[in-house]
Amino acid sequence: MFTCKCCAVSAAALVLLGACANQSTVQQSSVPGPALGRAATAEEIKAWSISIAPGGAGLPAGSGSVQQGVAVYAAKCAACHGEKGNGKPADALVGGLGTLATAEPVRTVGSYWPYATTLFDYVRRAMPTSAPMSLTNDEVYAVTAYVLNINGIVAGDAIMNAQSLPQVKMPNRDGFVDYSRK
């Protein structure tokens, strides 16, 4: 009984759609949406595109040195990440090299993160937690340089910018296995 009733309603609806083709109709799920999105301007896209790809796409103009990063780190980061990135109360940023396959792995920027671009991306969008997006691009480059330096990944005279940062080879670059299609 129920099935018959259901079929009857569907048939009626189809007839209705056919009869009123030039008027408003009930849309089926396969037809496109109402197209209510408006075109995004280039300025809007630029303002909101804060993601940085591993190859460096999206990195802004500007630069910062390890030495400049010392001051930025002391002012904006040390209260949570400790002196020289040793951690507490927030995550440690240094150490752990060579520990990943041991019984007590220590995962930090230096020992675990595969791309230096991720450090710039994350610091700029989310740090410090009390005032995200408050650092200038120069400050983000500088503190990125500093954190890479205290991990022994870049030299003390290193300068990070849109060209140099993607060139940094992180120690654990090859430590990840892509499971997206497994």
Binding site: L100, A101, T102, P105, R107, V109, Y112, W113, P114, Y115, T118, G175, F176, V177, D178, Y179, S180, K182
Partner: peptide, 17 residues
């Protein structure tokens, strides 16, 4: 990368699982 990746016994990490 640093979070939501699964560290395995051999030190490799499963990513995008």
């Amino acid at each position: 990368t640093s979070k939501y990746s699964m560290l395995m016994r051999d030190g490799k990490a499963r990513q995008f699982m």
